[in-house]
């Protein structure tokens, strides 16, 4: 599904060179729910941006669904983001002037679906997250948890290969956070691959496996994953 080989990302200014990722190798299989954790400054956001094709790596190879996406141009990357990746952001990133229906519709319009196809997908996605009755509401008329569910519906509507979640419960209280995590687990159980970036150990524990970053590299196995059925050591082996 997702395979990174020796990915590095260096940010350069006139005065300083920052190595956000250092030869990171990682693979995620179809249907997995992987949590990427690490302290602040460990490279989580850079990993997320590169995994989501929001920015490019300085070096290394990256394949998505068996396709090398390292050398794609801006339009091709936009297309893959639209078709294969569903984004869930910490701040939901819903468009405040559009109602929930139109928010979910945004990526579908970029995809070029006709009106009937879009409507069907929007209704299905909103139904999946339990917001079918609120499709005419503006984001400001919904609670934080509902807004994040709407954002999940937007991510799901296009039928992506995997969901990329950036601190999906970071702006929610514990009750709403639990509801959103339940929803993500449900979506994963239905077959959607999820890669979630978080610094919250509680959240990470609910993933199938944890990958911990430290200084832009894979750290030692995450203690929270010790009880998981999949051995951490196997997950963290460099890709051959």
């Amino acid at each position: 599904m997702l395979e990174m080989k020796e990915i590095s990302r260096v940010y350069r200014t006139d005065l300083v060179e920052t190595h956000a990722l250092r030869e990171l190798s990682l693979s995620v299989d179809t249907g997995e729910f992987v949590a990427v954790t690490g302290p602040s400054g460990s490279g989580k956001t850079t990993f997320l941006n590169i995994a989501g094709l929001l920015e490019t790596a300085t070096s290394g190879e990256y394949s998505l669904d068996g396709t090398d996406v390292s050398g794609l141009n801006d339009n091709q990357r936009s297309r893959i983001r639209n078709e294969k990746i569903g984004f869930i952001f910490q701040s939901f990133n819903l468009i405040p002037d559009l109602n929930i229906f139109d928010n979910v519709d945004v990526p579908l319009r970029y995809r070029g679906f006709d009106g009937a196809e879009r409507r069907g997908r929007i209704e299905k996605a909103l139904d999946q997250v339990g917001l079918a009755a609120r499709m005419k509401h503006l984001p400001s008329q919904l609670s934080g948890g509902q807004q994040q569910r709407a954002a999940i519906a937007r991510a799901l509507a296009g039928g992506p290969s995997f969901l990329l979640a950036d601190e999906p419960t970071g702006n929610l209280d514990s009750l709403m956070a639990r509801q959103v995590m339940d929803l993500l687990e449900k979506i994963n159980n239905e077959g959607t691959t999820i890669v979630m970036v978080t610094h919250d150990p509680e959240l990470a524990r609910r993933a199938h496996r944890n990958v911990q970053l430290l200084d832009g590299q894979l750290a030692s196995p995450d203690p929270f994953s010790a009880s998981q059925s999949t051995p951490i050591e196997a997950d963290l082996q460099p890709v051959a």
Partner: peptide, 12 residues
């Protein structure tokens, strides 16, 4: 908002 639109698939 523009960044979000770009992230979810808008081309330039």
């Amino acid at each position: 908002q523009i960044g979000t639109r770009r992230a979810i698939g808008a081309r330039k």
